[in-house]
Computed example of a mutant assay.
Amino acid sequence: MARVRAAANDVSSGRLAPEAAGHGWRARQVLAAAALLLAACAPSPPPSPPPPAPAPVEKPVVLPPRPVKSPPIDDQFCDGMIAAIDAWKEAFRALRQESGGPGPWQARPLDRELGLCFVDGTSLLTAAYVCRPTMDGRGDRGTMEAMFRRIEGRIDRCLARPSWYPRRWAKAPPVQLSGGEQQILWRDQAAWPRPALRLKIEQNYQRAGTWTLRLTSYAMR
């Protein structure tokens, strides 16, 4: 490298001119080579710093939809009871849906559990609104007895609400019937004729070996 630089200095100072008058092209080659070597040996500039990282984008927080709560089972049941007893004065016409002929009318379900309902009779003292379990005909005795106690508790809680005033509901003791059947009766002591409710567990004679229950709203003389 020192020799190249010395040669370049000699050429640039003119000291080679007398000896190499006919060889100017060689001087130019030496200068070009020296320039290339100097450029190759020069330190390269430091790399440019990387661009700054983009700022993190905050994702919006998406809250899950609030579940739609259905009314408690007791409230659904009591609403059905209120509708059944309010329709008693008009022989349950408000609960009728359709009739398949001269027989009873299909009626609005009491709730999800007592969904097979019908209205029988056309006058105040003969009409009755009767509901059986939605699973009617498929219950053994143990299943129906458990449902019987469950429905009994719902009726007690519903009729104990102060919103029934001025009605005065009274509950009769359970009555044991033949064949293991039993029933419970509730009646309004503040009216005459008296609105009444009867809950009964009974054998399902249409399907041997099965049991069912029915809840009846009617007028008690």
Rank of each mutant, 00 (worst) to 15 (best):
L125A: 09
D140G: 15
I151P: 15
F118T: 10
W192E: 07
Q182K: 11
I151F: 02
K171S: 06
P166F: 13
I184H: 05
A190L: 01
W88G: 09
S178Y: 02
G139K: 04
Q182E: 12
S178T: 10
W164K: 05
L185K: 12
I82Y: 15
Q182N: 03
A84V: 02
Q183E: 14
C117W: 02
R168H: 07
P109Y: 09
G180F: 01
R138W: 10
I82G: 12
V175F: 08
R157N: 11
S99K: 01
C131P: 04
P173K: 14
Q106E: 09
V130M: 01
G100V: 01
L110V: 11
K89E: 12
T143S: 12
P162T: 11
D111P: 02
A107G: 13
A91K: 07
S123F: 08
P195M: 10
P173T: 10
I151Y: 05
R198F: 05
T134M: 05
V119F: 00
Q183M: 12
M147G: 08
G139T: 04
E145R: 11
W88N: 15
C131V: 02
A172Y: 09
P174Q: 10
G139V: 01
G101E: 01
P109L: 10
Q182C: 04
W192R: 12
P195H: 10
P166V: 07
R96I: 01
A94M: 09
L95T: 06
G180M: 09
Q176E: 14
R150V: 00
G101I: 03
D111G: 00
A128Q: 15
Q182H: 09
R157T: 13
S163N: 04
L110P: 05
Q97T: 13
R108F: 00
Q106A: 03
A128L: 09
P193D: 08
E145D: 15
A190S: 13
G115N: 14
T126R: 04
Q97W: 01
E113A: 15
R149D: 08
A172G: 10
E202G: 12
M135L: 12
E145L: 13
E152F: 01
E181K: 08
D120S: 02
A94F: 03
P195Y: 11
P133W: 02
P109E: 13
G180W: 02
W105T: 02
